[in-house]
Nucleic acid binder design. Structure first.
Lengths: 197, 197
DNA sequence: AACGTAGTACTACAATCGGAGTGGTGTCAA
DNA sequence: TTGACACCACTCCGATTGTAGTACTACGTT
């Protein structure tokens, strides 16, 4: 078992790309080798088996999605009104095209988690922490909308993303933007005069 | 190419089960044969190739999900108030456990559609028609809530279902019910005194 | 400066496995 | 008798895995 951490990370990044492109079942050692452009057999030397690879990839995805938290920090800079929420939601949805492989890989992993308890055990706390962080962040930032509103926005935006990722022709770009705006319109109060600090 | 339609349908049903259990990539002729409990090689005789099988399975899923439309017809029987909407949403979410394989197979197909234009072409109009039917149905039934509200409910409920199907431990049953109720609470007006008729 | 060692990159190989497709035979019904 | 189909068995093929063996690099020692 090789110990080169940089190479291991590169292999995991390659694995995430493979996941998005080929699906969970297409994630083979060889495919990872090819994607990472390393000699065949390398992935075999770094991961004990497929389960090991899947699980580590599941953990790795979040390491790469967390930098969005830095972007999220920027969200504090603007005003704290409903329009700002709309803008943030637009940015979230737009981010799909940038991180497309990440989102798709995560979906693949979710489905694979159906069959792999070990993977499920890794993903469940991560997702829950992500949700909690989102809600906490929103509330503490002073943006309008309570925890319930944030949760419902989270649900709606997530499916919107799935729809866009998997069957982009179901909604036009206009419908997409419209749905985002109406979601905020309906779920977030016009301004937060009561709880703002 | 065999013509026995009953057997073909049985093979497609088996294919849907395989999809849910093994994922899109695990859908092989042999696996379908095994699931359908027919001799090996049978599926080969009924479908030209994997693409053919996938596409037909994608179409077949909707044949089996449509009977829900019959169930949906029953939804007209109750009162036309917000509480009724809540009840219908609960029923929708509860239906997951009954049709689990169907929902999972559909998710797998969505991801596979990412890679197969032919499958995408089959799924896109189906999904769109399904959404439109839902909205139309809701509006014509006289239940409270406009098209936007129905759409947003649709988005939120769909992701709730994904969450429950793939990582059931993220939300407890109570949280799940709570989210359904709050979604209706926030998105559907308390009663529809204006547009009913 | 020469040497030894450890860890790793790389190559190549051998074995395995799963799956696809097809030809042949028996059966049933028209 | 003929045609379609169920069933069975067999062969060919490609992909994948795991590993053995070799070369390289860095580092520490003398």
């Amino acid at each position: 078992m090789r110990q080169n951490q940089a190479r291991r990370a590169a292999l995991l990044d390659a694995a995430i790309d493979v996941l998005a492109r080929e699906g969970a079942r297409g994630l083979t050692f060889r495919a990872v080798d090819a994607q990472a452009e390393v000699p065949g057999g390398t992935a075999s030397n770094y991961f004990a088996n497929r389960d090991d690879l899947l699980t580590q990839a599941g953990a790795r995805i979040y390491e790469r999605l967390e930098p969005d938290a830095a972007t999220l920090a920027r969200s504090l800079e603007g005003p704290r009104d409903r329009e700002r929420v709309t803008q943030l939601m637009h940015e979230l949805v737009d981010r799909i095209s940038t991180y497309r492989t990440g989102y798709l890989a995560l979906l693949e992993l979710r489905l694979e988690a159906t069959r792999r308890p070990g993977l499920r055990a890794v993903l469940t706390p991560r997702i829950r922490a992500d949700i909690d962080a989102n809600v906490d962040y929103h509330l503490r930032s002073g943006l309008p909308g309570d925890a319930t509103a944030v949760m419902l926005l989270y649900l709606a935006m997530n499916w919107l993303i799935v729809e866009q990722l998997t069957l982009p022709e179901v909604f036009t770009q206009e419908q997409l933007r419209d749905l985002v705006e109406r979601a905020v319109e309906r779920l977030i109060p016009e301004s937060d005069r009561s709880g703002a600090g």
